[in-house]
Design a binder for these strands. Structure first.
Lengths: 215, 215
DNA sequence: AGGAGGTTGTGTACAAGTTCACAAAGGTGG
DNA sequence: CCACCTTTGTGAACTTGTACACAACCTCCT
């Protein structure tokens, strides 16, 4: 039974990491407290939204003063489940996979890259930025042995669904898909899809519209 | 003056690239037409939503039959402004910048990487996957000379805002930011922010909640 | 002790997005 | 040419998300 968490809206969950980033920055600059106004400015949103979002986590501010940076950072981190590390495995050691493996932001924020996995025998056994590349045949073993929580799919589109199926079967907890195809996983397995080219196409739409209205 | 485009909702715009991807796949498998149901399945959404989304572009379906794949693909591409190529410049040739430079999905979908830009003299002059690395001092010249439409920021967080300012000043049309910081650009300049670690944190939230309710 | 100034937390109105459900319309076969 | 089947396009109900505005409350100063 869920004790707290009286259902936090999806839109709010998606913003929590942004607030967290701002809080880390404030913490590093030795700020003691912060107002919703300032936090809103740093996060690029409206101050009322910040207050409403944070109120879903609990009542952690002080009227007339603001929020204690340290304490709020702790609470946001806890809400996001970042108390302990979540080891990730990256499937697909092409360019994107290797870049992701080397991205310090992951380890820094509690997502150590525990394994790189590929089908290509020529890549297996190599070490990319200190992470060994394993053969996809060992996927299930690796998930179990290394306690992998999250699978990151960085394969070509054609292989993505099969990889997702194997990850889920192996007991992975959630999936982040970079392959440019929609994949499906069972209900209850959190899934996020990121397509870099999609973002450019969205920009293309708006800039084209700007050009049209200037004409 | 805008002739068509009776304002397409943001949520719809964000889905058009997904539909387009599905249509490309259908086209490659020589499908002639497709129902909203099938398209919905391939895109991971509800069929009614597909129909409503497509109806914002115009009335391109045939009742009782579905949509002509070729024609719909053309219309969606046109709505997204993908009739002509939009050259992009990637600022920051670290791991992410290099991976993006080598990502075939960009060029394939009409976003050729025309330049890589860095501050580090040691990197300038090198060629990464056939793309020359230029010094950031030449940013303004490059935007003008190469007709750069979109600037991709793949720098450390600290440099992102300054780079964005220079890109906008140089006349860029839109900005895609991968640096883990919120940046701001003038109204009218489309901006999208992608933070890879944010996605993992969102997953962390939901998988933690699952674990809590299983307890 | 009391008032002034400031900031949170939230009820409420509003806007955006989603889903349902069905009339309208094209195609097909007798 | 008409009945039947299929699938679109869309009005309308509903759900989710955003913004406003202000009471509640804290701190500090006199």
């Amino acid at each position: 039974m869920a004790r707290r968490t009286p259902t936090i809206p999806e839109a709010t969950v998606a913003r929590l990491p942004i607030y967290r980033r701002a809080l880390v920055e404030l913490d590093e600059s030795s700020a003691i407290n912060v107002s919703s106004e300032r936090l809103a400015e740093m996060s690029g949103v409206n101050a009322a939204k910040v207050r409403k979002d944070l109120s879903y986590l609990g009542s952690y501010g002080t009227r007339g003063v603001g929020y204690d940076v340290d304490y709020l950072l702790f609470q946001v981190s806890r809400a996001l489940g970042l108390n302990n590390d979540w080891p990730v495995a990256i499937v697909g050691s092409g360019n994107l996979g290797q870049a992701l493996a080397n991205y310090r932001g992951f380890t820094q924020r509690g997502f150590p890259v525990a394994a790189l996995i590929d089908v290509d025998d020529k890549k297996v056994g190599a070490t990319v930025h200190g992470i060994e590349v394993h053969h996809v045949d060992r996927l299930e073993d690796l998930v179990a042995e290394l306690g992998i929580a999250i699978g990151i799919i960085a394969t070509p589109a054609g292989a993505a669904q099969a990889v997702a199926d194997r990850l889920v079967e192996a007991g992975i907890q959630s999936v982040l898909n970079f392959a440019p195809v929609v994949i499906s996983v069972p209900d209850g397995v959190p899934l996020r899809q990121v397509d870099l080219a999609t973002e450019l196409q969205i920009l293309s739409f708006y800039q084209q519209r700007n050009a049209a209205s200037d004409r």
